[in-house]
Design a protein around this nucleic acid. Sequence first.
DNA 1: CTGCCTGCAAACTCTTTGCACGAAT
DNA 2: ATTCGTGCAAAGAGTTTGCAGGCAG
Lengths: 179, 179
Amino acid sequence: MTGAAVFEENVGVSTPQARETFEKYLRKRGLRVTDQRMAIFEAAVSQKEHFTAETLLDHARAVEKSRYVSRATVYRTLPVMTESALLREVDIGTGEKFYMPNVGANAQVAQVVCLDCDRIFEISAPFMEWYGSTVSSKLGLTPESQRLQVSARCNALRDAGSCPRRGGNGTRKPARAGR
Amino acid sequence: MTGAAVFEENVGVSTPQARETFEKYLRKRGLRVTDQRMAIFEAAVSQKEHFTAETLLDHARAVEKSRYVSRATVYRTLPVMTESALLREVDIGTGEKFYMPNVGANAQVAQVVCLDCDRIFEISAPFMEWYGSTVSSKLGLTPESQRLQVSARCNALRDAGSCPRRGGNGTRKPARAGR
DNA sequence: CTGCCTGCAAACTCTTTGCACGAAT
DNA sequence: ATTCGTGCAAAGAGTTTGCAGGCAG
């Protein structure tokens, strides 16, 4: 049931004409096109894996020719990008929220979180939508969204003592940069 | 597929012989049987709906003939009760964790969260376990747990302007009691 | 020129923790 | 008598927000 295809490498969309799309969206919503917002946008859509607000801040500050970006602005811009469906919010219950560029139609995805390497894998799970409507209607509710997450342990780590996925992402950042 | 039975009223186990069970568990783990732990235990298992640490604190303090219970002790006792499988932790991504007495074999449950009345409904979802193992094995992982949550809106509120479920639980508490 | 945006820092929420006293075994 | 548990208060972590000045339109 339900082809569970694993998206190992989720290629982040670069910034050829994507920039224009975001500019257009901002204007349509009556929001101003600022240097900071564009830098945060560029940093966000170029991510290949899940990222946090803190990581995004670092990358936004690394965007060339951009003005200084503050943490507050990142936090204020993230909702704009998720509302525009550019990003997807992924809450794995660790205190900090993760985000992921929304590539195409992978809206219905489940996450498999490796508790050993902190990695987040995404799996298409189209049946989630069906399930959501089914159970919601029984309660007189209209589904808005659904999330399915599996927490798991690494077999290789248990057997061989080391995790094959070299600390790609997920490796928790040590501290906070600018306070 | 998968009998999706809704547990409308989850009757909280009272405290006839349940107390002894917890006392026994504490001793087995080399933990001391204190007045506070027992009060928190009683407060927890008598809950009929999902509750937070803060709510539990209030109820524990209301337990007759018990010594004063501090917030810290509640936070220190919650893990003990979840490890003993007396409680189940439910994270709906709102910042605060919810807990639920574990009644019988309802380990594999999904949650439907009403975004209007903040209520949490539980639905049995046995297929979750199967799903977890299936996708985990494809990644070389061993599943530990899985969560499935549906966020939804109240039809009655949309149509009639009011939610039929009178603010049972979920109605967010105004402030914090003891500081 | 007007008002939205930004940066700064403080505030906030939930949870965890160090320490000294007090109680269970 | 030990040692673990408790209460207090402070510390944390992540995120939000009030305010004054700055930039987009």
